[in-house]
Design a protein around this nucleic acid. Structure first.
Length: 573
DNA sequence: GCCGTTTTCGGCCCGACTGTTTTCAGTCG
């Protein structure tokens, strides 16, 4: 069973306990455990097998009780307490409480009074005007629930990071034109660089919050206003994404930007530390008694408690406080560190631009080198090249390289890993290429051990250099193939294969968690765009932010190095 | 249910907005 499925059980237990109005701290404990499991790079089952209950309890947020439940799941295939909860509540009941505007208490009340136990019944009752007659309800609340239902249907899931970025930039650009806006910044999961974004959080510094609120809810991208208060408003935009705006005074900037960036668990942890020191942290600052003693700058939110500055991408409660206390926060890689892009396509296969166009666009970005990596013959849907075509293509690349000054245009290919682990081209051809990228484009549904062997076999070819989009996932479209990533990374290290962080917002693959694991195992990482057009070369920033979330530094990467060094590392000189 | 440089028991972050209320509960982040 994968970690995500374990986490799901504990998330749901938390949801059920919330319905039962159990001790809120118990509920939080389950959620914390679930999040902790989600951020593990190693498989929970493997951790258990390596040292039993004891090793499970070493995981933060997992204590004796939850460790026993994990063991129970591994040994018996189910958790009794969880099964019990499933029996207690009708199927689909959890979904009720997740309707915007509803919560556990409302859901439970409606179940008791009106026997509502599904979304369909809720909609029926609300439309029939049955809710408004209940105590504590009114016409407005009923209407709000109907709107919540509508919203739930439309906003299926989360948004990709590039879409969210574009919308956040739009709001920031429009509001920053107001003279009352002193500072404006997009915070939340977007600032932390999460792979998908639920809603956009904007923080504004101003002494006239009312004016900002008015301008925000009147923006032409706004479809509906969810809430509008003195200092805080929420809207749904025309693309069905939610945006929240918060206004605070200058003296609270640091505290507010920290609070609004999150994540929640990170915030709670800092507030607990403050509490122990007799201080109080809120979005308004650090307080002693009633007096503000810090929080003007974000740096202060950490330094006041003896921590080094923690970059937003690391604020996920994955050990950042421990590192910050010891002065061990890495100096994270930046976009400017990237010296070349090693995965891109041209009109020769399924790209939109020619070799020359790609090269000129890359040169404009200040890159020292690029690697042209068109598809090989087995990827027929992407017009993969035969050996003969590839040899001609290789000549074309060399020609462009001679024509253009100031950037090295290298000849490569994105070579298919065939189902049996062999490669799509012969060694004779592979060794002619400057660098060889390999990837899987077919037979995604293999069994785990077979898929793992397939990839490791490909790694043993001495002419290959980079393993592209290692998990094969497409966010929101296709799950990763079933593979033992730990073994893959170890094999990559052994065979001197670099792994790719594919920067495309739909891929972001390796994920942050495996970036961190790759670093621990001494595997070199490369960030590439997999661009199919000159515009897509701009996607590099999303790969960089993913690598940052994986705690990676300039020296953990290969395409931050000059070409000579890069080739030396890959034994390709 | 978790956790410990005050603790193995007694704590557990903090504030905004809405709707239905005459002072607050529920939801959200």
């Amino acid at each position: 069973m994968d970690n995500f499925s374990f986490a799901q059980i504990f998330h749901e237990i938390a949801d059920f306990l919330e319905l039962k109005q159990e001790n809120p701290f118990k509920i939080r404990a389950y959620r914390k455990a679930a999040q902790s499991i989600e951020s593990l790079s190693e498989n929970l089952e493997d951790i258990y097998k390596s040292g039993g209950i004891k090793t499970l309890e070493e995981i933060p947020g997992i204590g004796s009780h939850i460790a026993l439940k994990i063991e129970e799941q591994i040994k018996t295939g189910k958790v009794k307490a969880y099964q019990q909860l499933l029996k207690e509540f009708p199927k689909g009941f959890l979904e009720l409480a997740s309707v915007p505007g509803m919560g556990p208490k409302t859901a439970l009340l409606l179940y008791k009074k009106l026997k509502i136990d599904s979304i369909a019944k809720l909609e029926q009752a609300a439309k029939a005007g049955k809710l408004r007659r209940l105590e504590g309800f009114g016409a407005k609340k009923e209407a709000n629930i109907l709107k919540g239902l509508e919203l739930k249907k439309k906003t299926r899931g989360r948004f990709l990071i590039d879409q969210a970025t574009a919308h956040a930039e739009l709001i920031v650009e429009k509001l920053s034109k107001l003279k009352e806006v002193k500072k404006i910044i997009a915070c939340g999961s977007l600032r932390r660089g999460q792979e998908t974004i639920g809603d956009i959080d904007i923080l504004v510094i101003s002494s006239q919050p009312q004016k900002i609120m008015g301008a925000f809810v009147d923006l032409d991208v706004v479809r509906r206003v969810l809430a509008k208060g003195q200092t805080k408003s929420s809207v749904i935009m025309k693309n069905n994404m939610q945006a929240d705006l918060r206004v605070v005074a200058e003296k609270s900037f640091g505290a507010a930007v920290h609070y609004f960036t999150g994540c929640k668990a990170h915030n709670i942890h800092l507030r607990q530390i403050a509490q122990k020191k007799g201080l109080k942290v809120s979005e308004y600052g650090i307080f002693k008694g009633g007096k503000q003693v810090g929080g003007r700058t974000e740096e202060e939110m950490f330094s006041r408690f003896g921590f080094d500055y923690i970059p937003p991408e690391l604020r996920e409660m994955r050990g950042e406080f421990e590192a910050a206390a010891k002065g061990k926060i890495p100096k994270l890689i930046e976009l400017d560190d990237i010296k070349g892009d090693l995965h891109m396509h041209t009109t020769a296969s399924d790209g939109k631009n020619t070799i020359k166009e790609m090269a000129l666009a890359a040169k404009k970005k200040g890159y020292e080198y690029i690697l042209i990596t068109d598809h090989t013959k087995s990827t027929r849907v992407a017009h993969g090249l035969t050996e003969k075509q590839m040899q001609q293509h290789w000549k074309d690349i060399k020609k462009v390289n001679q024509e253009i000054e100031g950037i090295e245009v290298l000849a490569g290919a994105e070579v298919d890993i065939l189902p049996d682990g062999r490669l799509d081209y012969s060694d004779e051809l592979l060794k002619e290429l400057d660098l060889v990228v390999i990837a899987i484009h077919s037979n995604f549904k293999m069994a785990k051990d077979k898929m793992t062997k397939r990839i490791i076999k490909a790694f043993e070819n001495k002419y290959i250099n980079i393993f592209a989009h290692p998990s094969g996932r497409l966010i929101g479209q296709r799950s990763p193939y079933d593979v033992d990533m730990e073994e893959i990374l170890k094999a990559a290290q052994k065979n001197n294969v670099a792994v790719e962080v594919n920067a495309h917002p739909r891929r972001l693959d390796l994920t942050d968690i495996y970036c961190k694991r790759a670093k621990e195992l001494g595997v070199k990482v490369i960030i590439s765009t997999d661009a199919h057009s000159t515009e897509e070369l701009d996607l590099m920033k999303y790969g960089v932010i993913t690598a940052r979330r994986g705690w990676l530094e300039k020296n953990d990467m290969l395409n931050t190095k000059p070409l000579k060094q890069l080739r030396l590392f890959l034994n390709r000189h």
